[in-house]
Design a protein around this nucleic acid. Sequence first.
DNA 1: AATGAATGAGGGTTCATTCAT
DNA 2: TATGAATGAACCCTCATTCAT
Lengths: 212, 212, 212, 212
Amino acid sequence: MQTFRTPTTSLKEKQRREREELIIQAAEEVLQEKGYYETSMDEIAARVGIAKGTIYTHFPGKEELVLAIFKRDMQTFIEGIDDVIGAEPTPSAKLEALLRFSYTGFFSKQTRLLSSMYNGVDMKRMLAEKGGCLRELWESLVSHVTKLLEEGKAAGELNSSIPTKVMLFSFFSLFSPKSYDHLLLGEDLSHEDLVKYLWRIYFNGIANHETT
Amino acid sequence: MQTFRTPTTSLKEKQRREREELIIQAAEEVLQEKGYYETSMDEIAARVGIAKGTIYTHFPGKEELVLAIFKRDMQTFIEGIDDVIGAEPTPSAKLEALLRFSYTGFFSKQTRLLSSMYNGVDMKRMLAEKGGCLRELWESLVSHVTKLLEEGKAAGELNSSIPTKVMLFSFFSLFSPKSYDHLLLGEDLSHEDLVKYLWRIYFNGIANHETT
Amino acid sequence: MQTFRTPTTSLKEKQRREREELIIQAAEEVLQEKGYYETSMDEIAARVGIAKGTIYTHFPGKEELVLAIFKRDMQTFIEGIDDVIGAEPTPSAKLEALLRFSYTGFFSKQTRLLSSMYNGVDMKRMLAEKGGCLRELWESLVSHVTKLLEEGKAAGELNSSIPTKVMLFSFFSLFSPKSYDHLLLGEDLSHEDLVKYLWRIYFNGIANHETT
Amino acid sequence: MQTFRTPTTSLKEKQRREREELIIQAAEEVLQEKGYYETSMDEIAARVGIAKGTIYTHFPGKEELVLAIFKRDMQTFIEGIDDVIGAEPTPSAKLEALLRFSYTGFFSKQTRLLSSMYNGVDMKRMLAEKGGCLRELWESLVSHVTKLLEEGKAAGELNSSIPTKVMLFSFFSLFSPKSYDHLLLGEDLSHEDLVKYLWRIYFNGIANHETT
DNA sequence: AATGAATGAGGGTTCATTCAT
DNA sequence: TATGAATGAACCCTCATTCAT
């Protein structure tokens, strides 16, 4: 009996995961468009085409749903990092690739969502209360970049007289969600170009200019 | 008679303003701590020690209260700019002073609130709907900084091959609210030092490195 | 001293009464336009050009103010009756004059306000709770009309087989406020003509048609 | 499967309708007792024994609830008209039946509520804003009665020298809500008798008395 | 397991009334 | 005495969550 059951369970389980995926996608959409507080469980359910109660069979509540999204996006992002920077030869090239990846890559949308969610005062409490393993993810990301920066310093590419922490902070600043982006940048600058220039500024800022 | 009347009026008016100031301060506090949506009129009133209805004799509604705070803080900030940068000799020194001002000056708290309020999806709508003269303030700030950047280019201090818009964007990125500041920076770095390094990075990033 | 004081007191008292009159007039206006619940003390005070609190030195509260108006209008109306019907020779002529008076006379506005206030469920409670001497006024009015009807019957003008009470009820029905008046009547019928026809219907309805 | 499903759906739907009916009944009660403004959603919910929020799953808001009641009662009344007057031979008999119907029939309560709701300044605005199809209902009623009156004139039953509009107005006056009914009529007159007399008065008033 | 109607705490807002000036 | 800012109870409405079906 078990042998028959297992595939059945798997099927159901598969459908269940598919639906969960749909919920997450819908939630991401609405969160992106309206932000946490203007996002209602009703609208998410409506976009998926399921009943509101069904969401609660997948997630214990709104906060948990959002945290799950947050976590998943973060994981996806972190998992993508290695692929992206693997091919690059130097630490600084890796950092540049990372910046480009987050602005232009397949996950640019998630990146922006992540970033906009991470800011926003409400998140603080949620992360503190129910953050769970998120801290680990965050630290993994931080240590990744920290390592790159320190390798850059060791390789003589980056300026050793600037604390790594500040470089880190400065690097993450480039990702900040800026709802006023368009106000500052207008429309006639592609993300590609923006990244190019941002990197130039940032790299020049942290580069080791010593002439040996 | 007028001579007696005027001070009387002034007294009441003074008390009124004091109360309004208290409301604004309490609101700023709560907004900083909890963000727009988690801030309730009840809590603001409770912190001031007044009845909820009293707030409505000073501000037509929650949105207007928040926008008033936003506007006031922005005005204060902009008004402070001239004093801060006036004494500086060069465009880049002025920019550095501006950065330092916003991080360490008397208004650093407001600056942070401003920045954290400006992001957040809800603000977008509010600014669009009831922004009123806020757009002007914003543009005044932007044009201020733009002017400095262009003067810096003209003076040969700044790199003309980087679009001013990107420099602007990059500059404002440094102000972005980062609720994770402490996570990246730890506690052993003063704001003074942080600004020093940030400016070094930013200035190196945008500086004109040509050797004539 | 008293002899000097008295006129002073009278002057103040006079001013007080003038203001009270202004309050009442303003309140009548707003009540007519917006009804009891949409009428705010603020608006009344604003129309008079005084502070809201001042109204409370004249009337203990909103209900009392409205009841005072109600009472005053009713008294004025009742006081006017004798003048209006005095000149008429017969009971039915008196009734007709009364009807015309209330529709077209100087007090038609008050009459309509009265009528519209008397209906409206809220009034019931107010009259029950704080009606005070209003009952007497009402009964005075009722007995006035009742007397006319009975005199008409006695004089052979009116149909004795219809209970006076029903005639009374029917008579008062003609005064009912009908916000849909204009819907039914259109614009091309003067109040004069309307009264003329209404009276014809009513009188024919209650007349004694017996041919002796 | 469908055969099982349908009744299930029906059951839920049935319960929903029953609940809605209870809400409407409770609302009618409170409206009758207290009028629109003194009626709170809380009280309606309490009388039904449900949570306040539940009302909002049936009606979008207070105004809509009241308008729905208004509309429903009006429809019920209008739908009942044909049954009531169908059996009557002449236009005037039909009018009499209509009057009796509204005073004594099954719907006398609704009729009174309708009438008392239609007056009241607040209704004017609501009807203007969200009246929707109510205007049509009202006009259907008016045209019904107008037709009867004109048929009566054509048949020589009614007095052609009185404008139909005035007859109409006069007829509707008989329905006006009179919270002072009992003050005028006392208790010893049944609605049956009242209608009998009212009709006598009204009919005599509008009848064609010409002797051919 | 999915549904969606019901729940009810909580939010913003209004306004008659009070009271210190 | 007149003022009008302050009060706070009461209102309508929303929406995350629950639960009977």
